[in-house]
Design a protein around this nucleic acid. Structure first.
Lengths: 140, 140
DNA sequence: GTTGATTTTGAATTTCATTTTCACTATAAT
DNA sequence: ATTATAGTGAAAATGAAATTCAAAATCAAC
């Protein structure tokens, strides 16, 4: 009986209104399927509709997070970044500290070991973050 | 011929001055051997010497990072946290999202797998961050 | 131990990403 | 269409972090 999770459905379920701005921001964000700082997404949004404001991009991104369609991350450069959630699977990041390139990866064995560690400390893990910082082959 | 890495030696090598304030801040920080937000360390410093300012705590913490005696971390609560570096070994964190408890752990097998992943993507990893978020047994 | 060039201090100010405000507009249920 | 409610965007506010600057402290050379 559960509906598909879409931004539109989320808004409706919460009694929030669907607006042209929200749709545009969400579309651009979700279809690009990569990491965005608010600034980056704002610039992209501006190109397709210059009348959409910074606040709206911010607010929409937060709604997407609430809806479970985006996650918020800090890579330590002072800017919060958002990324679309791929419903299938979790992933982690390799970050080049020179050029900023971000590569996603996934390793089931690492996740297993993580659960083992958490168990040893009597934690129930609900989320995790693994980031590897270094130099990509171009910057090396 | 390399000298021991101490804060005093670092300052001297860089032509910086050793001051009472720096010593106090560094001492309290290093000997406490736990995570601090700047605010937290500032409060502790205030108790032993109320005339030491916020900026000095900030600046000293940054110097400690430069000296390799502290690392800077973001746990996503909006405050930068600093922790003394234990020269022996790297460690990761288990964080309770209810009470804020932070447990350190280390798992060599995870580190090995990380290096494997990085290699596959032609990255040379210089640092990494692994954080497991969840509920500790008390908050569960 | 005094000097004096230079660095550090700390209160206050500034910065800057993010959040909030508020007058106005758009949405959607009736 | 009306109306109650929520959303918008420009501007202002917020708050953690960085910076400024006059006064104070440090330290190498005397």
């Amino acid at each position: 009986m559960s509906r598909e999770i879409t931004f539109g459905n989320y808004l409706q379920d919460k009694g929030l209104k669907g607006t042209q701005q929200r749709d545009e921001v969400a579309d651009l964000f979700l279809k690009a399927d990569r990491h965005f700082s608010v600034e980056e997404l704002y610039r992209r949004v501006q190109k397709s509709d210059p009348r959409i404001g910074f606040s709206t991009v911010y607010r929409t991104l937060k709604l997407l997070v609430e809806a479970g369609l985006a996650t918020e991350r800090q890579f330590g450069d002072g800017f919060t970044r958002f990324e679309p959630v791929h419903r299938e699977e979790h992933h982690d990041h390799l970050i080049c500290i020179k050029c900023g390139k971000i590569v996603e990866f996934k390793d089931d064995r690492i996740e297993e070991l993580q659960n083992g560690v958490a168990g040893k400390h009597n934690f129930r893990v609900t989320d995790h973050k693994l980031e590897l910082y270094g130099y990509c082959n171009r910057c090396e």
